[in-house]
Design a protein around this nucleic acid. Structure first.
Length: 491
RNA sequence: CGGGAUGUAGCGUAGUCCGGUCAUCGCGCCUGGUUUGGGACCAGGAGGUCGCAAGUUCGAAUCUUGCCAUCCCGACCA
């Protein structure tokens, strides 16, 4: 069949591509490095977005929108920041096209060169802090808690659907605070929001931690992160939250007058998650039959497939199933009744399995006689006949059970893929043969971290929160180590 | 951005070395009919600038050059 997907064991990368493309989440586009998010994939993102948006608002944030284009000079104001992003910025140099005098279509009008070139935002710290300067004068203006939903562009050399594309969708929170402690607390709080979201909605267990200096966001004092583990044993950074100190306040001269009438620089945070979460979701739960969607964010939670011979039976089914659809909708369930007569039940079964719909109901005349529906769950692929009477409530429970089951499965995988090692030889062996996180003592230097990366391709994913301080020896250098950190090969 | 591979109808493909009724086959699509409890069947039909652009040639899917896109492996990164 044309919809067949490559098995994980055969080619994991191809399996992932097959799921995204054949599952209808996204397509390649005519533009290098950019993808088209298709309706089914976008519906998934919208569900994620809606939940996160509510969580942000519940923690006191407001949405705003800042420009896509940023004056080039802004980027250079914060030294570490420009260093981090300069290499991947798209630049707008002209503002007009004209007909090619040689008849070759349109060309850039050389007379329309911009005085100051504009960069397409790779992130918005600079334009936002330039704006905050005008918004903040007094401690009464603080804290300033803003989020924006936006697209950003980072000119990546190698792209992968959802995981790394030149343009992607995300949200970026940018907050300003009167004290350092309050800003740190905000950064930690938002990391916790992300972790809660990943675990409760994406059924994706994550490890909370901080980044080592070399993995830190360009311009941050501290980067908090949530790290997830994919089925191939590679780690994936699922969200980051940065304590920016006063770096941007100083770069953009954002000061406020305190109660004591003294001028002070504000303390800042920024935090973001992106459409990359879609990739994380796909790789964490799906199987060789196709996508597996966690019910809480699944675009379609329940699909109903009618089984009938002839129009008469169809009519009877339409009526009964129509009532059931209403019942399910009233229970807040996202349901689709697929009564398309052009494809047969078997085809639909396979199609919705590929799309990862958590629950499928098949209902035919036989079922109506018995007052039941055949209920199939995507996660375990089990089927059962359940009474139509009170079905909505049963389905609600079932969706929660599936959500929970997916989380438990992923959690078990994660827990069994954190390996403690103390020597470098074992470290390499675990990475090659088992994958996952490797917890190993590290001497705390960037040099050692770099050396380990060169030798093994593994990086420090995070220093877990509340990490026990245990004396030891660095597995590579033998130098004193204050604590274990988590290494992994990563996306 | 370096190395390797690929690009023929919506999808998957034959043909490319050796230029000349070669645009092949399957799925899908449209029409009609029979069907419908795990990817239906019959009959008829539509659909292709052979990735794009130059060039070589009497003649190019096929040869040459450039470009575009995708995949895999590196370096870089969410």
């Amino acid at each position: 069949m044309s919809k067949e997907i490559t098995a994980r064991a055969v080619d994991y990368s191809q399996w992932y591509n097959d799921l995204v493309l054949k599952g209808g989440l996204a397509d390649y586009s005519a533009v290098k490095g950019c993808m088209v998010i298709k309706p089914y994939g976008f519906a998934l993102w919208e569900n994620m977005r809606d939940v996160l948006d509510k969580m942000f608002k519940d923690t006191g944030h407001q949405n705003a929108y800042f420009p896509l284009l940023i004056p080039k000079s802004f980027l250079s104001k914060e030294a570490a920041h420009v260093e981090g992003f300069a290499k991947e910025c798209a630049v707008v140099t002209h503002y007009r096209l004209k007909n090619d005098p040689n008849g070759g279509g349109v060309v850039v009008d050389p007379e329309a060169k911009l005085e100051e070139e504009l960069i397409i935002r790779p992130t918005s710290e600079t334009i936002i802090w330039n704006t905050y300067k005008d918004w903040i004068q007094s401690y009464r203006d603080l804290p300033l808690l803003i989020n924006q939903w936006a697209n950003v562009v980072r000119w990546e050399m190698r792209t992968r659907l959802f995981l790394r594309t030149a343009e992607f969708l995300w949200q970026e929170g940018h907050t300003a605070h009167a004290t350092e402690a309050e800003a740190v607390e905000e950064a930690q709080k938002m990391m916790e929001v992300y972790a809660t979201f990943a675990e409760n909605y994406l059924a994706l267990p994550v490890i909370r931690g901080t980044k080592s200096e070399s993995e830190r966001f360009a311009g941050a004092v501290d980067t908090y992160c949530i790290e997830a583990l994919m089925q191939d044993g590679k780690a994936l950074q699922a969200g980051t939250s940065h304590f920016l100190g006063q770096n941007f306040a100083k770069a953009f001269d954002v000061q406020f007058t305190g109660k004591d009438n003294k001028l002070e620089y504000v303390w800042a945070t920024s935090w973001g998650v992106s459409t990359r979460l879609v990739g994380a979701l796909v790789m964490a739960h799906s199987d060789d039959e196709g996508l597996v969607m966690p019910p809480r964010v699944a675009p379609i939670q329940v699909v109903i497939v009618p089984i009938y011979k002839g129009d008469d039976q169809k009519k009877v089914l339409d009526e009964r199933i129509g009532a059931l659809v209403q019942e399910l909708k009233q229970a807040g369930i996202r349901v689709k009744y697929d009564d398309n007569d052009n494809s047969r039940p078997g085809w639909k079964f396979a199609e919705y399995e590929l799309k990862g719909v958590p629950v499928r109901l098949a209902i035919g005349p036989r079922d109506l006689e018995n007052g039941v529906a055949e209920v199939a769950r995507r996660d375990t692929r089990e089927k059962a006949n359940l009474p139509l009477e009170g079905l909505a409530a049963r389905i609600q429970d079932l969706l929660e059970e599936i959500q929970h089951n997916l989380y438990q499965k992923a959690l078990h995988f994660q827990e069994t893929h954190v390996t403690q090692v103390d020597d470098f030889e074992t470290f390499q062996k675990v990475l090659d043969e088992k994958g996952g996180f490797v917890s190993a003592p590290w001497d705390g230097t960037a040099e050692t971290e770099e050396k380990i990366k060169e030798l093994t391709k593994a990086t420090i994913r995070c220093i877990p929160l509340n990490n026990p301080k245990e004396g030891g020896k660095d597995m590579l250098t033998g130098k004193p180590s204050a604590e274990r950190v988590l290494f992994a090969r990563a996306y």
